[in-house]
Amino acid sequence: MQTLGLIAISTIFAASSAMADMSILVQSTTSTKNSGLYDYLLPMIKSDTGITVNVVAVGTGAAIKNAMNCDGDVLLVHSRQREDKFVADGYARRRYDIMYNDFVIIGPAADPAGIAGSKNIASAMAKIATSKSIFASRGDDSGTHGKEKSLWKVANIDQTAGSGDWYRETGSGMGATLNAAVGMGAYSLSDRASWSAHGNKGDFKIMVEGDDQLFNLYGAMLVSAKKCPTVKSKEGQAFIDWLISKKGQSAIATFRLNGKQLFFPNAD
């Protein structure tokens, strides 16, 4: 038993020492990870810069909190207001535009709220609420959740009145929420990348898309070494520099899932 333990422990330590200093930790969102974007970019970054990028994918809210606890070198999320606050509070020197895509409302083919093909998100949201069609919300303080709440506001709906009734907060990530939506025939708000990559679609389709309100912007921030002395500033900055470089931007643009472009580069 003791030998077994020693073998196991030494294996573990060998495994961790392999991740030497040339690695950084990125706190990011499930949408970027589940789409496969990182699987596409990271090998290129590794070969260009020698940096191994480890990605923890959680909701934007959790990602920002983790970064504020200094458990990450770079933050890559999609919630503009909170990103600006992160910078204003001194956790990062500045924010970099990286890319954008858009949100979509997905729903069952039966379309009980009758919103299919709509280009007006505010009226579509209002129709969902007045018909009391089931809506699956992330409810997890993520970037997508924040966007959804702002859309209800634009539609002038108090969705929380229907909580537990037609408005159902899963408190989970995008994928789990999509599974829940498909499982109970509910509408839901998703970023386009997550929806495209989602394998369990049932008879669900995109119902609403194309409204300017549905714009989804991703930003990257290097965690400040003043707040978090352990941050690997050099490697973290190199990662961001690569993303906003010509090569990085065109790599983002060439990433395809099922033949479709999911992210649109927009660095300055």
């Binding site: 930790l25 699987d39 480890n54 990605v55 923890v56 989970s172």
Partner: peptide
């Protein structure tokens, strides 16, 4: 562990990830 690919991903977190990606069969 953070379910980091090639670093801290284990069977159960991989299952959680594939479920969240809707890849239920996998």
């Amino acid at each position: 562990g953070g379910n980091i690919d090639h670093l801290t991903r284990v069977m159960t977190t991989a299952i959680a990830l594939e479920t969240s990606k809707g890849e239920l069969a996998l």
